[in-house]
Design a protein around this nucleic acid. Sequence first.
DNA 1: TTTATTAAGTTTATGCATAAAATATTTGAA
DNA 2: TTCAAATATTTTATGCATAAACTTAATAAA
Lengths: 166, 166
Amino acid sequence: MSFNNLEQQNFPMATEPLSKTRLRLWLKILKTSRSIEAEVREKLRAEFGSTLPRFDVLAALHRSEEGLKMGDLSAELKVSNGNVTGIVERLVKDGMVLRVPVPEDRRALLVRLTQKGKEYFLVQAEAHEGWIDQHLSAFDEQEANQLQSLLSLADNQVHDDERINV
Amino acid sequence: MSFNNLEQQNFPMATEPLSKTRLRLWLKILKTSRSIEAEVREKLRAEFGSTLPRFDVLAALHRSEEGLKMGDLSAELKVSNGNVTGIVERLVKDGMVLRVPVPEDRRALLVRLTQKGKEYFLVQAEAHEGWIDQHLSAFDEQEANQLQSLLSLADNQVHDDERINV
DNA sequence: TTTATTAAGTTTATGCATAAAATATTTGAA
DNA sequence: TTCAAATATTTTATGCATAAACTTAATAAA
């Protein structure tokens, strides 16, 4: 009983505590997200023999014509350095991506899409948009925007690692 | 250009197609979900030296006093058989969980929480509810329910593998 | 009964994912 | 200049995660 839920302390409730409602909301967000993600993974696998991490890397590279350094890539995707090493390695082996040395910094490598990789990605990106469009077909413009802005309430929280005095 | 988006065919748009709005909505759902999930994983690690898959297994077992067979467990968590084998193995090693043979079926195993596992889980479950309550503190009862019901629009889609004639 | 099929679970091979340690290079200070 | 600290990346160890192959046991047919 160590949560300083002021509401609970000051207003003992007849019904369910707000924390339970929020917990249920989280489970719902998770369920929706996982369901769509599972569908995307499955279709990438079935239709392109690929994976979501690969797709994410290609998408990031497609956004920057000049290519990205390994570090930028892992920062952009919010995954660890070592993780990116492996994914890029396999993309290189498949000829989708190129590792170019950076003259000014012999530690760094620039990763760039090949022509093949670019085409490969564009086909998948269009298919991807279609899958999502289908899956979220119950949403009209207004509902989609409403849901999106409600979700924004979950942003801009002060989390542990962002606070000044940890 | 092979999507039969009737709206697009019948009403050429001045502005952005609905599919783009839905794609952005999906990216927003994903971002929110991943952000909360990352926080939960990190806290389970930092505060309990545990992981989300372990927590999920313990939660499922806690829901059924009698225990669950390996198959039921993997069905409930929607993960593969082999996956559950590994997670349970580590929980057994830590004394959180017990594997009991089923007399009527010598192929099957019943997995049950130990007393230690039960206590271990209850502490984590309470902490977990608190983390979520904090993270979603911007939502009052009404907003939480509204978001939850909007998310339900994403359910009850007919997906490939559920259709009658695939 | 034998045998074929189905079912429960584990094993194997592969791909993400992380944290921590290691390697190599650059930069900054003494 | 020299050498300590910081930076960019890879490597290692471990844990999920899946699909496919495998093992063992239960069930159904012949």
